[in-house]
Each structure stands twice: as structure tokens, then as C-alpha cells.
Design a protein around this nucleic acid. Sequence first.
DNA 1: TTTGACGATAAGGTTTTCTTATCACTATAT
DNA 2: ATATAGTGATAAGAAAACCTTATCGTCAAA
Lengths: 298, 298
Amino acid sequence: MLPELKITQLRHFVWVAELKGFHLAAEKAHRTQPAISLSIKDLENKLGESLFEKRNTKTTKTELTPFGKSFLPKAKELIEHHDRIAQDMTLLAEHKTGHLRLASVPSIASRMLPEILSKFVENAPNLHISFFDDNAGAVLKMVENKQVDFGIASMWEADEHSDKTFTPIWEDQIGVVCRSDHPLADKSELHWKELRDHRLISNGTSRLLQETDAAPLLTSSQFYISNMISLIAMLEQGLGISTLPGFAFPQGNPNLRFIPLKEPDIVRQIGIIQMSNKSLTPAAESLIQFILDSTGKG
Amino acid sequence: MLPELKITQLRHFVWVAELKGFHLAAEKAHRTQPAISLSIKDLENKLGESLFEKRNTKTTKTELTPFGKSFLPKAKELIEHHDRIAQDMTLLAEHKTGHLRLASVPSIASRMLPEILSKFVENAPNLHISFFDDNAGAVLKMVENKQVDFGIASMWEADEHSDKTFTPIWEDQIGVVCRSDHPLADKSELHWKELRDHRLISNGTSRLLQETDAAPLLTSSQFYISNMISLIAMLEQGLGISTLPGFAFPQGNPNLRFIPLKEPDIVRQIGIIQMSNKSLTPAAESLIQFILDSTGKG
DNA sequence: TTTGACGATAAGGTTTTCTTATCACTATAT
DNA sequence: ATATAGTGATAAGAAAACCTTATCGTCAAA
């Protein structure tokens, strides 16, 4: 039966040995001298051998026995090993290190995450981040397959009571996008019926119009363009108009206008999607909290 | 401030993780299930993060959190490290391993030690032994210089109250050595005066006659031979007779006889010499005990 | 010889750890 | 659907481990 050595006990031993005295060791351990005496005695009993030369007699020096001498380096190594692990785990728990994987829908990825992430990593210099951007469906899949710790996307009712949890964060209003010189360009808001006479290009986000008053627009749509970059190019070309969530609109584009759709007022809820049963890594947990805080939802 | 993890606690964690359950782990730890629950809880508090998935709810499986998963291998390593050290030190304390150095006077070295050492090492397969044989003075020096853990030799009064401790073990009686065809060869015991008419070769052990009734023999001695092999050769040649302690007599030599000296009856005390203040390694301690036991002095 | 420093020891209090008893929950088998 | 057996959590008190105060004996230096 092997004895079970306590780290604290080993520390006491090392201190007594290195400071050459029980009193000094006691001070360092924030304990009284008898506590150290007993601790060492217990250690000696466990090991079955004296660590220090017969004390209380002849010699006043606190000196290691040969046995103690051979134990000293081993004890120090074990303590160092312990401290290294304690340090590692503490850093991990405090999300200063580790690996964080997330996926997001492109609009948030380009519009909100750059600032959030750059601020977040300031306090976590050793944190590795893997980031994926894709459409909402793909994000959802990556969460389900546990390829990512969590995802950022919108979630529609169908999946509401599933094994995933949705925490809404941003509200993204649908609007109409057209060229600056388009007849609708100067409106400050629009009714869906005003769009009927214009060529509507549908895209990946157009399904948001389904099940709303504006649904009829989709059936009459001649073009469908899935790729956002192509879509923008077409719109800039003046091929037609389209609907997009606000965050997906390339803000700062001088040639295009974004006009909120007021009737129907369609708002896309974008938020965090995670598995309900699986708990998150500290780093992931922490980033979510950070996002909530920096968006005022905390 | 780093938390101080206890080895026992880490064991509990590893067992719960590997046996996938608190009850099984409790059994293995010879503890009750609540004890393990609390132990894990305490560990989680120290680390500041959950190790197992939210228990008591939804899932009945005891599963690690990502944090716990990354902790598991580290915890196992630390436990193994601890056990390795505990093992090493226990072996060292039980003198199954280590390095043992001793010096002995040749008579004991050749007469008693072979059997003793071969029996001793049977129980200590990993013990390294360095052995030196030399005359009593040299043995004493090696003990003083700490070149050896202890020495085996005789010790004369002058050094009695020194920094060395002498533990007598063997009693070696002085006798007369002569060739088998020598006039004295058939005697069963001798008086020193019977030697006066024979040529006496003195040797390194002859000082044992000093301060005894037989001292006059030394002054009349014509030959002094320090080397034992040469001495034996001379004796076999019939050059003369000599005195030797019994253990120094090459037993089994067909050409020589050993006749105990009865008057004076000189007994050389041979025993263990060690430094008084310095404690011994477990291996040395153990060999000394073994010698005491096997000579009935324990 | 006295004093100061060292570590050991005794007695008693505090903290930690464990146990017994019980609860809440889930899954399986009636 | 209900009972049953299995999971882990929790509360209260007992046991063990740990620490403190007070004191002692020894040694070495003043």
C-alpha cells in the first residue's frame, strides 16, 4: 500500500529543507511551528523513514538525512508538476487559454463580430479561435454536429423545441435594396405593394418573406441569386431590387440604398445557438457572456 | 492564488470519469457516494468550473464537460507521478533499492561477508553495493571521510569516545599459526612463553599483542610482514611462526595449523563503525540490522 | 549562568472529510 | 400508467485531520 502524500505536506518538507529551519518554514507556510513539526512527522511516518537528522539532540542544525536528500528533488518536481497543472486549469477556467470554435451567419460575422472578437481576445492572448461563416442552415448543422461550440444565426419556429437553445441578441429588420438612382431610392420606408411593379431579385434571405403579407412578391420573382457578392453586383448594375436583412446590407456602399420595409415589418431574430444538454468550454461560455454584455443583453 | 489539489481528490475525479458513475467510484475509493459527490464538488469549486455535465437533470449519464475532458489526462499524469515517487521512496525506505557503500577488514570480508551479503541482496535486487576491503586503519578513515556508509573493523580504546560509534559483533581470538609439521602443530592451545624459542614473524595484527603479557615477543621478532599473502607464503615455507586473529587465518589451508593462544587470551572485537551524528541510509541501516540478526546480536 | 533560538510535545479547538438518512429525478419493467 | 431500481444531490451530525496556544528540553552564544 502506497502512502498518499499531500502536496501541502511536501511543500512544508521542501521549505524546511531549503530554509534550514522549522520556524522559517512555518512563517512561509503561514502556519505555526508545531504545525510544521507535525506535518513533517506525519510525512516521515508515511514514508517510514526520517527526513531530517535526529533533532533536539546534539546538533542544532536542521539537516537532511541521506533519505531526505534523495526525496527533496523528487518532492520539488511533484510540487512543480502540481502547480503547472493547477495553473493550466485555472487559465482554462478563466478562458485565458484553450480553443474556441464558432460559426456565424455572414452578416453578423462581418458587421458585429470583428469588433467584438478583437475586444474579447485582448484579455485572452493564448486563446485559439476557429471561426466559420456560412448561412443559417449550415451554422445550425455545425452546432448539431458539435463542430463548433456555438453558432450565431437566426432560428425559425420549427426548431424551437428541439435539442438546441436559442438566445436572441440582434434584431435585424428586412429592407429593400436598390440602386441610388432607382425610383424608390429616396423613400424612407416602403410598403410591400410598392414593390410589385419593380423587378425583384430574390436571394437566400428571401424565405423570411414567406408566411408574411409580402409572400406574393416571391412567386413573381424572376431572378434568384444565392451568392451575396453576385447579388450586390447585380443590384449595382441596376438589374433590379431585392430584399435583405439590414445587417446583410453592405453598409457604406455608395451606389446602393437600403429602405426599411414597413408593411409587413419583418424582423429577423439573430442570436446564439447551442446544444441544450452539452455544456460549453469556459472560453465559449465567456465569449457568449461577453457578447451579451457588449450588446446590452447581459 | 493557485488552488491546492489533493491527490485523493484527483483520484476520485478520475474514477468517476472512468467508471462513469459516482457509486462505482465510491466503491473503488472505499467511501460512500455522498463523500465522492462532495469531493468532486470541492474540486469543481477549487478549479472554478464544472467537471461533469449538469447532473440530476435530463441526462442520467455521468459525462465529462469539455473542461473535465481536458483535465482528465492531466489529473491522471499527476497521480501517476505521485505514485511513482511514493513507490520510489517506499522502496528506498525498505532498502530494496539505493546505493550502499561499506568497507571491511579483509578477514571478515572474506570469512563472513560473502554469505551475509549474498543472503541480504536476495531481498534487495535493485540495491547497488560498493565494497572496499582494507586494514582497520583504512576502514576507519573511509568511515570518517564518509566514503562509506559504515565500516567493519576492530576499534581500539583510544578512539572510544570519538565521533564514531562502535558496535561489537564478532570476537576474534588470537592464535598461533605454524606449519603442519612444526613442533607446536599438535598442541590444542598455547602459552605465550612456549613461543619464545621459535622464530616469530610479526604482521599487521601483531599490535594486538601490545599491552598484553605477550608483548615481549614482539621486541624479539626478527621479521615483519605486512602483506597477508606474503605472510602465508612465508609460513608455508617454514620460515617461522606468527600470530593471527582466527578470522584472518586462511581456513582450509592444508599446510598450516592454527592453535589458540590461551595465555594471554587475546580477543579482538570486530564490529560496525559508523559516524555518531550522521544517520544512515535505509539500506545501510537495514544491512546492519541484518548482520546483527544473522550473528545473533540483534 | 543566563539568554535566545531551536524543535518536540500536550491539550484543546477548528476545519475538513466522511457517514447515515433522505430527496428528486430518470429509465426500465411491469 | 405505475412501480421499481438506479442515478446523484443534499442535510445533519460524527469522525478524523489539522492547527493553535502553551510549555518543555536542549544547545550555543553572550
